[in-house]
């Protein structure tokens, strides 16, 4: 009966993942390996960026007239924020579908999302990356890693650490069923600062991590060290988010740009 319960939990979490995220690894890989009828539009310089802004991300850029006179770096930063906000909303819905999450104290739900969403976001971003670039605008565009690196500082430092993480993470060859459980494990984490009902969350975390372990054994029978490797990735993601939060604070202080209110809430008093 216990194994049956674990399989049910794995299935519920996987279904919630497929239902709530607009992009997933399977879709992203289809696009990145050229198996779609229309390939993504490649953004590799200022000219192709402007073309993409007029078509693919017109809604994001056009939503604020204040962006018109800003430089490319600030406009790209704004688009990154829009994508992050969309993913945070998707992650919130996903979290609510994880069995037990909605029964938690509301303050604890807020805390788990505050600390978990960026780790989850960067883990899922890896699905949209290859060594040369990143899918953007729901898979209709592809921005090159070289172009992102060529932006002026500090914006040029924004994506490169995520590419470096993604290349190592992608070598683990997880599929969407593994990622669904991994993302749930990131969110239901008992050691976030300020949690009220730690034992409750620890019990949830324990069941999800057990299910992840069991699932990896059956889905990747030849890779016996995959589970400990993934646990290490949880540590790496925490570091990646700490550095990202510092960079965002630096950009906020030194650049003429604004931060979305939802992201402001998340970053405030974070680390």
């Amino acid at each position: 009966p216990q194994v049956a319960d674990q399989k049910t939990l794995a299935k519920q979490i996987y279904e919630a993942y497929l239902k709530n995220f607009n992009m997933n690894k399977s879709k992203a890989r289809t696009i990145l390996t050229g198996k779609t009828s229309t390939p993504p539009f490649v953004i590799h310089d200022m000219e192709t960026l402007q073309l993409a802004e007029q078509t693919l991300v017109a809604k994001m850029v056009g939503s604020s007239g204040a962006l018109l006179n800003k430089d490319a770096e600030v406009r790209i930063f704004h688009c990154c924020q829009c994508t992050s906000v969309e993913t945070v909303t998707e992650l919130t819905e996903f979290a609510k579908s994880v069995p037990g999450f909605s029964n938690l104290d509301l303050n604890d739900q807020v805390t788990l999302l505050k600390y978990g969403v960026h780790e989850a976001l960067f883990a899922m971003l890896a699905s949209c990356m290859n060594k040369d670039g990143l899918l953007v605008a729901h898979g209709s565009g592809f921005i090159t890693r070289e172009f992102l690196k060529s932006l002026r500082r500090p914006f040029s430092q924004m994506m490169e650490p995520k590419f470096q993480f993604a290349m190592k993470f992608n070598s683990l060859e997880l599929d969407d069923s593994d990622l669904a459980l991994f993302v749930a494990a990131i969110i239901c984490c008992g050691d976030r600062p300020g949690l009220v009902n730690v034992p409750h969350i620890e019990r949830m975390q324990e069941s999800i991590v057990n299910v992840l372990h069991l699932h990896l054994k059956s889905n990747h029978p030849d890779n016996e060290f995959l589970f400990p490797k993934l646990l290490q990735k949880l540590v790496d993601l925490r570091q990646l988010v700490t550095e990202h939060a510092q960079l965002v604070q630096e950009i906020k202080k030194t650049e003429d740009t604004s931060l979305h209110p939802l992201l402001q809430e998340i970053y405030r008093d974070m680390y």
Partner: peptide, 21 residues
């Protein structure tokens, strides 16, 4: 905590209210 995270709180309580981009 809920007071300091009004948008997250709203998303948790009401999924049908979108966040402006």
């Amino acid at each position: 905590l809920k007071e300091k995270h009004k948008i997250l709180h709203r998303l948790l309580q009401n999924s049908s209210s979108p966040v402006d981009l």
